[in-house]
Simulated assay, not measured.
Amino acid sequence: MPSAVTSVPETYFLTKPTAHVPNSRLPVLVYRDVLPSPTPESICAAIEPNHWIKGGVFKHYPAHHFHSVTHELYAVFKGHSRLLLGRGPLDADSGIEVELKTGDCIVLPAGVAHCCLESSEGYEYVGLYPEGSPHWDNNFCKADEDETKLKVANAKAVPVPDSDPVFGAGGPLVEMWTAAERERVES
C-alpha cells in the first residue's frame, strides 16, 4: 500500500444540511488506487486490522440514503461507478458527483447522503464500518423536518474513529476529521 504521506485522499465537503439530509462537518474522503488487485478477502485483510469491519459485499444501489449511526467505507473491487453525494431525491441542491473505480475507497461520514447513479456491469464493493459501530441504519432522505433533526443529532454524535481504514492509526482520516471536529466546536 502507498504511504499515508504520499497518498493524501481527495476531500469533498458537504457541510450544509438539506431539508431531508444531515450531511456532515467531516469531509468525504476518496483514496485513489490504494487497493492493488483487490478481492473481498484482500480488502478485509488490509482494512480490518485498522479496526474497520466488513458489513457486506454490495452492488449497484440506486436509492438515495444515508446512515445516521455510523460512518461507511466503500472499497471497490470490481468495475466502476458514479455516486451522487449530499442530497436526496426531494432536495433541489445539486450535490457532488464522484467517480470510483477498482482499487479506490471512499469514506462517507455519518449523515452524508449517497446514491449510485450509474455503474459498470458487475460493479461490486465491500462495505466496512468502524469497529464497535452499531449496525447501519438506512435513511432514504424523505423524512419530515422533526425526524431529520433527530437524524442530524444522531450523525453529529458519531465519534471520529481512532484509525484510518486504509493507513491505520497514523493515517490522514483521523487528523483531517479531528481538525474538522475541532473547527466545529470552536465556531
Rank of each mutant, 00 (worst) to 15 (best):
G95H: 02
G56H: 04
I106L: 10
I53C: 03
G56S: 13
S81P: 04
E72V: 03
V112E: 01
T148R: 09
L90H: 08
L73E: 05
A110M: 11
F66T: 05
E121Y: 03
E124W: 02
L100G: 00
I43A: 04
S94W: 06
T70R: 01
I43F: 07
V158R: 00
D146Y: 07
G86L: 01
V126W: 04
H60I: 08
Y125G: 03
D104H: 06
I43G: 05
P134W: 10
A92C: 09
H67W: 05
A113P: 00
L85C: 04
K149R: 14
G122Y: 08
E48F: 05
G127F: 05
F77D: 08
L117S: 09
S42W: 11
N50K: 01
A45N: 05
K156F: 12
W52H: 07
S119P: 01
P161W: 05
P40E: 09
S119G: 06
A155H: 00
L128K: 00
D93Q: 15
K156N: 13
I53R: 08
G56Q: 09
P134A: 10
A46D: 06
I43N: 02
D91Q: 10
I106F: 06
L85Y: 03
N50G: 05
F140E: 08
E121S: 07
C115M: 08
V152C: 07
L117G: 09
S42E: 03
L117E: 12
V152G: 05
K54P: 11
V126S: 05
A155W: 02
H135A: 11
D104N: 12
T70V: 15
I47L: 12
F77S: 03
G88M: 02
G55K: 11
L83H: 11
C105S: 10
C141L: 01
T70N: 07
L108D: 00
G79V: 02
E145W: 09
L150S: 14
S81R: 04
H51I: 03
L150G: 14
G55E: 13
A75G: 09
S68W: 07
D93C: 14
Y123A: 01
L108K: 01
V112R: 00
P40R: 01
D91R: 07
G132F: 04
L84Q: 12
Y125H: 09
H51M: 13
G127D: 11
K59H: 14
E99N: 12
N154V: 10
V98R: 01
K78C: 15
E118M: 07
D93M: 13
S81A: 15
H60Q: 09
Y61T: 13
A63F: 10
E121L: 10
T70M: 05
P89C: 11
